[in-house]
Every structure is written in structure tokens, then in C-alpha cells.
């Protein structure tokens, strides 16, 4: 008996999910951050964020097709974290690192928060 593991399968699946997002195929929720709107797949949001996991496993909220985030959330920070969810790449612009980290705290993405902390500490002169 043998087993063939396609080592790049996970990243290929994620790339296709991102293609579906950019073509708005089977996206099932709009995330409202201040005046900006982001279409996404609930399953991807839940897989990556503790906050969205809690929201979409709540029987009263799982059928919502629009979610407004707290107005303190920075849309640019959210956009970068949404991109991370669909690409595994976190773009850290110096001017946005705090907004990204605060948004990751809000979205309950603890591993990203820890990584941002370490990045800030390592880049402190």
C-alpha cells in the first residue's frame, strides 16, 4: 500500500479559494468596516479568526449575510488580515503595524498577534 502526499495541495487550495473570493463566487457574507465593504466566505473567516468562529457558530448569527465590525477597527488593517487569511502572507507596512496588530487582537487571531509582537520587538532599534 502506498500513500502519495501532494505537498503543495494546501497552498493550491488556498489560492483557488482566493480566486473564488476575487470572482465573488460562493462568497456568503459582507464584512462592513466603517464605510468599506469586504466580501468573503464564512468558512474561511471562521477557520482563521476566533471572533468569526464564535459569530458563525452562534445559531442566531450564522445566517447573517452582513456583519458590521466595531468602528474602532481600521479598514486597512482588516484588508491586510483578510488578505493574510486567503494567502498566508501578512504584509507589514511600518505605518500600519499597530493597526494590523490591534485588528488581529479584535479578530482573535492570537498567533498573528504574537508574531506582530515579536516583529515589533525585533525591529525596535
Amino acid at each position: 500500500d502506498s500513500c502519495i502526499q501532494f505537498t503543495r495541495h494546501a497552498s493550491d487550495v488556498l489560492l483557488n479559494l482566493n480566486r473564488l473570493r476575487s470572482r465573488d463566487i460562493l462568497t456568503d457574507v459582507t464584512i462592513l468596516v466603517n464605510r468599506q465593504q469586504f466580501r468573503a466566505h464564512k468558512t474561511v473567516l471562521m477557520a482563521c479568526s476566533g471572533l468569526f468562529y464564535t459569530i458563525f457558530t452562534d445559531s442566531h448569527k450564522c445566517n447573517l449575510n452582513a456583519i458590521s465590525l466595531d468602528p474602532k477597527v481600521d479598514p486597512e488593517g482588516f484588508a491586510i488580515l483578510l488578505e493574510f487569511m486567503y494567502t498566508s502572507r501578512l504584509t507589514l507596512k511600518e505605518s500600519l503595524i499597530m493597526a494590523i496588530m490591534n485588528t488581529a487582537i479584535y479578530l482573535q487571531m492570537d498567533h498573528v498577534v504574537d508574531t506582530c509582537h515579536r516583529f515589533i520587538k525585533s525591529s525596535d532599534p
Binding site: 471562521m46 482563521c48 479568526s49 476566533g50 487569511m85 504584509t91 498567533h111 498573528v112
Partner: peptide, 21 residues
């Protein structure tokens, strides 16, 4: 992403969804 200094993070990236709640 050419030209950007890329740091490889080998640790866990996201939470783990429990087998059941």
C-alpha cells in the same frame, strides 16, 4: 511580492477548530 523582505514564520498561523464544541 518581489522586492519585499520576506520572513518565513514556521509556527502555527491560526487557531485550531475543536473536533466538537
Amino acid at each position: 511580492y518581489e522586492g519585499v523582505n520576506t520572513i518565513k514564520e514556521m509556527g502555527r498561523s491560526i487557531h485550531e477548530i475543536p473536533r466538537q464544541d
